[in-house]
Amino acid sequence: MADRDTTKAPTAGALALADVEPVPGVPKPDPILVVDKVKRSFGGLTAVNVDHLELQRGAITSLIGPNGAGKTTFFNLMTGFDRPDTGTWHFDGHDLANVSAYKVARYGMVRTFQLTKALTRLSVMENMKLGATGQRGERILASLIPGIWKAQEAEIEERAEELLVRFKMDHMRDELGGELSGGQRKLLEMARALMVEPSMVMLDEPMAGVNPALTQSLLEHVKDLPSFDMTVLFVEHDMDVVMDISDWVVVMAQGRIIAEGPPAAVAANEEVIDAYIGKGHGDESRFTPTPLAGAPVSAAVEEVAPPSADEGAEDLADGGADLDGPAEGAGPADEQPGGRA
């Protein structure tokens, strides 16, 4: 597992984090999100209890942990979809306690949902265009005069088109959201989140239910995000994916951060293995190492690896070709952080 990422060149995020000590709550050189003493319980159950956590700007951080560890709840708390009992957190300098979800998104922190929320009766293109921020035509009076928003709409459509091409969904632009398959919805939701041009994306199991071939190209997209000045936090159960993609891994169990560090260090961590296998914990059933339904278990991966790797390679090949376009067009995306600030 661990030796896989030795083959790839270290990313900027990995380099920045190279000297950071792999202990829970460790400070990062340039954190974009800082969480302090955030606690949320449901009745008697403490779903999230994070003492201190920092996420490095421009890095890809994975959040892993057994089912019910509190990952989704943590996402909900960070993005204003749920309120913690106590605690503070800052994103890019903004204090986000008691900030409503839509404002969090406007500050540049955009999340996707574990249970996909494709807008069923809107077309794929409309789904995408909805993501764009600062639309003049979204104000009620201005919307009555097409002249005010037509030009901007055209720009947005162009950008959406590019993203759809990148995600290989351009042929589905007129399909309704509800007509897509589960995996396609995941793709759409991720692409739509990128339309917001966020400085940080939080992806809740973006690969779940996506076929392995597509997973590869999706992974390439995620890996590519830091080059568009985006920070990524994502939840994933498939360890191979986690090892492949992340600069940093945070492990949650029973609401707490029990470990963090570079992928290799975390994979070797005793406590993490315990948490997954259930040693030393009373309730074993809760901590079965499920890489999530649909995604192959690590052992199984080895067996199906050759064909999927081939497909992946092909995907990668034309994925790479597709990527050239948006990479050149990265200009506007690069301007974005400045434009937002």
């Binding site: 409503s100 839509y102 807008l119 009766r121 809107l122 909805l130 979204e138 939701e189 989140a193 917001v196």
Partner: peptide, 18 residues
């Protein structure tokens, strides 16, 4: 379009900053 997105799933609209 924003109205329709709220009809479909208001949390999704919220997550996109609406």
């Amino acid at each position: 379009r924003v109205l329709k997105s709220i009809r479909e799933d208001e949390d999704a609209a919220r997550a996109l900053g609406k």
